[in-house]
C-alpha cells in the first residue's frame, strides 16, 4: 500500500528574482512500513522534499498524494488538520512545548484531535513506555536530556496514530548513545507496529539502519536503493 506518491515535484524559490530550483521533478513512492532515509549533501533538497511531503510547504508544480489524498488541493486549514491526523513530525531540535511536561506534550496532539481524557491518558502512558520514559512522565523538557527529549518527540509524533512519521535530521543534536537508543526505538516501532518512517539525514548511523536509501542531488533523485538488513 502506497503511503506517499510524488510525481514530477518541482520547487523553485524566488521565482521572480534569482530562482533557486530546490527540487526538479522528484518522483517518489513510499510504501507502508518502509524505513526510508533521504540523504544527500546540504542544499540537495532533502528538507524541501520532506516539507512538501509533510504538507508544510507547497510544490511549485507536480502531484503529491499522501495517504491516498491529493494534498496539493487542500486549503491551509485543511492541511493543518490533515497533518494532525495523518503525519507525525520529529524535528532536529526536538521542538517540545517547553512549559508542558513530557506527558502533556504527548497528550497535546490528542487534545487537538478531541480524544477523550481517559483515552488520552492511556495512550500517553503506553507511548512513554514504548520510548522508555515511564519515569519521566512529569518532567518538563528542560529537565530532560537531548536524547530523552527526542524520544518524547517521537512519542508525540506517534500520539495521533499517523500514517507515517517524517523525521528531519532527528539525530543531528544527539550523542552516540542517544542516537543508538532512538534508532532502536524507531526501528522497533517500525518492525513491530509497521509504522512508516521517512528520515532526512546526514548521519551514517541512521543511513546504516535504513532499509531504503534515497539520495538527492541538486533537487533530483540520483539513487534509490533498498538495503537488506
Amino acid at each position: 500500500m502506497n503511503v506517499i506518491i510524488t510525481k514530477g515535484i518541482e520547487k523553485t524559490y524566488n521565482p521572480k528574482t534569482i530562482p533557486v530550483h530546490a527540487l526538479q521533478g522528484v518522483d517518489l513512492t513510499i510504501k507502508k512500513g518502509e524505513f526510508t532515509a533521504i540523504v544527500g549533501p546540504s542544499g540537495s533538497g532533502k528538507t524541501t522534499l520532506l516539507n512538501i511531503i509533510g504538507g508544510l510547504d507547497r510544490p511549485t508544480s507536480g502531484y503529491i498524494e499522501v495517504g491516498g489524498k491529493d494534498i496539493s488541493k487542500l486549503s491551509d486549514n485543511q492541511l493543518i488538520d490533515f497533518r494532525r491526523e495523518n503525519i507525525g513530525f520529529v524535528f532536529q531540535a526536538y521542538n517540545l512545548i517547553p512549559v508542558l511536561t513530557a506527558k502533556e506534550n504527548i497528550e497535546f496532539i490528542m487534545l487537538l484531535q478531541g480524544i477523550p481524557k481517559a483515552q488520552r491518558d492511556k495512550r500517553t502512558l503506553e507511548l512513554l513506555h514504548a520510548v522508555g520514559l515511564d519515569d519521566k512522565i512529569n518532567k518538563r523538557p528542560i529537565e530532560l536530556s537531548g536524547g530523552q527529549q527526542q524520544r518524547v518527540a517521537v512519542a508525540r509524533a506517534l500520539a495521533s496514530k499517523p500514517a507515517f512519521i517524517l523525521a528531519d535530521e532527528p539525530t543531528a543534536n544527539l550523542d552516540s548513545l542517544s542516537t543508538v537508543n532512538l534508532l532502536d526505538i524507531m526501528a522497533n516501532l517500525n518492525m513491530q507496529e509497521h509504522i512508516t518512517f521517512v528520515f532526512s539525514t546526514h548521519d551514517q548511523r541512521v543511513i546504516d539502519r535504513a532499509r531504503r536509501v534515497v539520495t538527492l542531488e541538486d533537487g533530483v533523485i540520483s539513487s534509490d536503493v533498498y538495503v537488506d538488513q
Binding site: D76, N77, I80, R84, E85, F89, I109, L112
Partner: peptide, 15 residues
C-alpha cells in the same frame, strides 16, 4: 519558531 512548530504538528491558527 514555536508557532511554526505548533502549526506544523496540527494546531489550527485560530486555536
Amino acid at each position: 519558531y514555536e508557532f511554526g512548530i505548533l502549526v506544523s504538528i496540527g494546531m489550527r491558527k485560530g486555536k
